Computed example of a mutant assay.
Amino acid sequence: MKSLAERFAQLHQRSNPLVLVNVWDAWSAGVCEAAGHQAVATSSFSVAESLGFKDGQNVPLELLLAAVETISRSVSVPVTVDFEAGFGDTPQQVGDAVARVIEAGAIGINIEDGLSRGERVLVNAQQHCEKIAQARAAASRRDVPLFINARFDGVLLEKKQTDALVDEAIRRGKLYQTAGASGLFVPGLTQLPLIERLGRSIDLPLNIMMMPDGPSVAELASAGVSRVSLGPWPFEYVRRVFRRAVGEFANQSAAFFA
């Protein structure tokens, strides 16, 4: 019988992407499972906001681990965790933190290269490789084929989409794969020709985040994407609806009973 981690890895298929509606607690994870989703993924932004913190690795690790454990206990499908920069500035710290999130129930993580000591900066590729290698070693010691989704933040940080940034994503993707990454995540990239070129140039499954006015799931599938995530948008949608209901309730008490 395949493990949850093995099942999760097999869901990443080029041109038939795994679609992840990112969650923030046991309730949202349960809704996704009940709707037929084969896996759930947390969003660091959404988890942080739900716990009263701002995104950027500001949530205390203990609180995040408690949230992951609660989510993992509430569903029977694989759970992958947006683990920001690995909750450590050194490879050893990251390895230790990854061991703990595996124990909390994670079979996959995102680990980004655009955060260092609380600052949004693109770190040296070798530095990120060392974090990935330590995460892989921590998983191997626990006999877990952890899906490590290495995130390239260059597009988000530069706030532009260029051939040069795609070239850097390709370069880093190959380095990250050698270090032990299972997939490459490039948030902020929405131009289909660039997405298609990136997907053709790497051996790793490519993860793209849906953006307002960006490509549809079908268009991303046609570009060879293997994983599509929604990031903070599900949480923001629920938050907007709740705010509207609260505002309506002030004038019409039936708002919450519709």
Score class of each variant (00 low, 15 high):
Leu4Ser: 07
Ala5Met: 10
Phe8Lys: 07
Gln13Asn: 11
Ser15Pro: 11
Pro17Arg: 03
Pro17Phe: 01
Leu18His: 09
Leu20Gly: 05
Asn22Thr: 07
Asp25Trp: 11
Ala26Tyr: 12
Ala29Ser: 06
Cys32Pro: 05
Ala34Asp: 13
Ala35Lys: 15
Gly36Tyr: 05
Gly36Leu: 08
Gly36Val: 00
Val40Lys: 01
Ala41Leu: 12
Phe45Thr: 01
Phe45Gly: 00
Phe45His: 03
Gly52Ile: 03
Gly56Asn: 12
Val59Thr: 00
Leu61Ile: 05
Glu62Phe: 08
Leu63Asp: 11
Ala67Gly: 06
Glu69Lys: 07
Glu69Thr: 06
Thr70Val: 11
Thr70Met: 14
Thr70His: 12
Ile71Leu: 05
Arg73Ile: 09
Ser74His: 11
Thr80His: 04
Asp82Asn: 09
Glu84Ala: 02
Ala85Gln: 01
Ala85His: 04
Gly88Ser: 00
Pro91Val: 02
Pro91Glu: 01
Val94Leu: 14
Ala97Cys: 08
Arg100Trp: 01
Ala104Arg: 07
Ala104Met: 09
Gly105Asp: 06
Ala106Gly: 04
Ile107Arg: 02
Ile109Val: 10
Asn110Gly: 13
Gly114Asp: 09
Leu115Trp: 10
Ser116Asn: 15
Arg117Glu: 14
Glu119Ile: 15
Arg120Met: 11
Val121Gly: 15
Val121Ile: 15
Val123Leu: 10
Gln127Lys: 13
Ile132Cys: 12
Ala135Asp: 00
Arg136Val: 01
Ala138Gly: 02
Ala138Leu: 00
Ala139Leu: 03
Ser140Asn: 12
Ser140Leu: 09
Arg142Asn: 14
Pro145His: 07
Pro145Thr: 04
Leu146Ala: 02
Phe147His: 15
Arg151Ile: 10
Asp153Tyr: 05
Gly154Gln: 03
Val155Arg: 03
Leu156Cys: 03
Leu157Arg: 08
Lys159Val: 15
Asp163Ser: 11
Leu165Trp: 01
Asp167Met: 14
Asp167Trp: 13
Asp167Ser: 12
Ala169Leu: 10
Ile170Ala: 04
Arg171Cys: 15
Gly173Trp: 01
Lys174Tyr: 04
Tyr176Cys: 00
Tyr176Arg: 08
Gln177Cys: 11
Thr178Trp: 14
Thr178Tyr: 12
Ser182Val: 00
Val186Trp: 00
Gly188Lys: 04
Thr190Pro: 13
Leu192Asn: 09
Leu192Asp: 09
Leu194Ser: 13
Ile195Tyr: 10
Arg200Ser: 06
Arg200Val: 08
Ile202Asp: 02
Leu204Asn: 04
Pro205Met: 08
Leu206Glu: 13
Met209His: 13
Met210Cys: 15
Met210Asp: 12
Met211Asn: 14
Asp213Val: 14
Asp213His: 13
Ser216Pro: 05
Val217Glu: 06
Ala218Gln: 10
Glu219Val: 03
Ala221Tyr: 07
Val225Met: 09
Val228Arg: 05
Leu230Ser: 03
Leu230Gln: 03
Trp233Val: 01
Trp233Ala: 02
Arg240Tyr: 11
Val246Asp: 12
Glu248Ala: 02
Ser253Val: 15
Ala254Leu: 10
Phe257His: 14
